[in-house]
Design a protein around this nucleic acid. Structure first.
Lengths: 200, 200
DNA sequence: GCAAAGAACGAACGATCGTGCTATTTTTCG
DNA sequence: CGAAAAATAGCACGATCGTTCGTTCTTTGC
């Protein structure tokens, strides 16, 4: 039922803590995440929470990892059931946009990118790895769309992936400041134009 | 020589403090800006720095305002000497891109947008006002380009402004994580395609 | 050059930060 | 059920946080 044999309870509370930490980090970022506030939110003692991670930095890394896993499960996995090529690319964008709607108040991954892009250390490295991985997935799907003949054969996959990502950044930015509805409309219009401009 | 009559020295040190605060906020954000660290950086006492602003929040607002002024002077003002229409739009993008190159390690305005888009309060309001103002300038220039016949007459100015902004977000994101050179190339390619797709 | 005004300092406050340490409670396993 | 082990609580630490207050130093205007 639970995980194999070793620690049955351990992981359960750890997961509970991470869930609360994730919500707190959405608003205040990973830098704004404090163990005291987190402990109060979970309903545990500071040291009890602390013991699960060993350091604040490890907690932040764990939250970042949890966010990345959620994102993949929420965006990429559902989209994989769409046929490869442009339909899957559209599905990715649709799921991603839905993710954006649910995360108007802040997305841990994007906030982290802003928080650590100018520094160095484990968190910076983790953010870069996460972002590079996701960009790779995007490029892969773009490449498949070209291979399937849905986009021009000479499509520059990294280039189109960059433009897709940029539009999603635009969505997040505008949704957070000016409201999701308007931003979502602009996003759709932009994508229709984008697909057309890369069509075979 | 100095400012009119009222407070000759006052504003000078205030400006000095803001200069240091601006640099600190570029890396750590406005939320990461602490009066103690700032005071040490300027070479003053905590209370000495504090007295110039009355509260941390007022300091943050002052830094945000300083950043917005810098941005306008560095990006919009130089571009205004280009002929209105597409040339000016291209100049804006060029100056903005140069701003991005100088601010790879973090831009106060963008960081602030991420920090306060999910909260409420004076800083949120200031960020929204600043972003709305700049977006308005963009739309205005886009509208002029359409009026001059450089872009299609039925150009949707807010839509194109959104897409321009999104690409600049993409530049900042990729430059911070993967390096400016690559990001800048992608940006140029994207813009050439973008202009073409809206051309008259 | 002196007095009034203003700017900066230094110390202290209560609070919170991350992080140890030691008990105490809870869970697991024979 | 009882013993070993693991998980949590409690307390304290040094540091830093924003802020206040009274004093000292520097600048200003007559």
């Amino acid at each position: 039922m639970t995980t194999a044999t070793p620690p049955p309870k351990r992981l359960a509370t750890r997961e509970l803590i991470l869930e609360h930490a994730y919500e707190l980090a959405r608003v205040g970022g990973l830098e704004g995440l404090s163990i005291g506030t987190l402990a109060a939110d979970v309903g545990m003692s500071k040291s009890g929470v602390f013991a699960h991670f060993g350091s604040r930095e490890d907690l932040q890394l764990a939250v970042l990892d949890a966010a990345a896993r959620r994102f993949m499960e929420r965006v990429l996995v559902p989209a994989l059931s769409a046929p490869r090529g442009l339909p899957r690319l559209r599905a990715i964008v649709a799921q991603w946009s839905e993710w954006g709607r649910e995360h108007q108040s802040g997305c841990v991954l994007l906030t982290a990118a802003g928080e650590y892009d100018g520094r160095e250390g484990p968190l910076h490295d983790a953010v870069v790895a996460q972002q590079a991985g996701w960009r790779g997935e995007l490029e892969k799907s773009v490449g498949q769309a070209a291979a399937e003949g849905h986009l021009r054969a000479d499509t520059d996959a990294p280039q189109l992936a960059f433009e897709i990502y940029a539009l999603m950044l635009g969505l997040h930015h505008d949704a957070g400041l000016f409201g999701f509805a308007q931003a979502s409309q602009r996003l759709s219009a932009a994508f229709e134009r984008l697909w057309r401009s890369w069509q075979a």
